[in-house]
Amino acid sequence: MVHDLLSIKRQLAGPGLLMGVGPIMTRISIKFPSVRDDFLHIYKNYPLYDGPQIIDYYLSVHAKNVYRRYLRPQVTINTLMNDDFVPLPESMGLLSVEMGMNWQVAFGCKTHVLFHSGVVEKNGIGLIIPAISGSGKSTLSAGLAYDGWRFFSDEFGMLDAQTGDLFPYPRPVSLKNESIAVMKDWLGNDEPFSREFEGTPKGTICYLRPPASSLEKMHEPVKPRVVIHPVYSPNAKSDIKPLTETMAFFRLVRSSANYGDIGAPAFRALAKIAKECVSFEITYSSLEEAIRLVNKIIDENVE
């Protein structure tokens, strides 16, 4: 592993820096100094390598030409995976990096069943939080992570279909709009946050580094025990609704990006979760409320 900042920057600017997150090793090169700074701030505490590692994905963050590098700087990325990303202004370079890495995992990872979901763990209890965008799953995952849970991911649940284990893939949390202030309040400390990126197609975006204690255990899996589908609704009364096994099963299928590719083992693994875990839908209007509901479900259903 490398720790010396100068050599890290040199790697990142040149041939590429190796970064391991959970089961995935990426070689990243970034040609823009400002984007390198954003990157190194949000990925502080992540394991970085310069030594011999076998590489999963290559990500290059560069300018298309001299004009795009110096005169009207624009960040282009290449994931080597049929991407077609719109170049972004240099000031939003970190977004490109994150989109590129998400793309590579979403389309490249087939060894694990991927859920579009957050995952956290406490006392050996794995909690899956699958949801569509806007349901608040990132905020809820991050809120739990900074409230005593171990953070696995806010975006990619990774399940080993053979063993039934969930694996951490603790990338920075992607927060949008109102949830940024909510999380800054929650932590009472701005250091783990990135700059706020305003005017993106999804509004304002800000990244949050997961707790260092979660990063230290990024290779320790857990068994899933509880599945909670959050529904954020600003004016609604909070509610807990149990799901039938069949509903739980089909919702998991729908949230999985590669269920169809993996085939029979994924079918068995998801059916096992649907039958053996407890599954609920919660409706909530604030982060405190959501966390109270999660704890209530755990207390009442898991010994």
Partner: peptide, 9 residues
């Protein structure tokens, strides 16, 4: 065909 028998289907 693989079958899984759930509570209601």
């Amino acid at each position: 065909f693989l079958w899984e028998h759930m509570d209601d289907a």
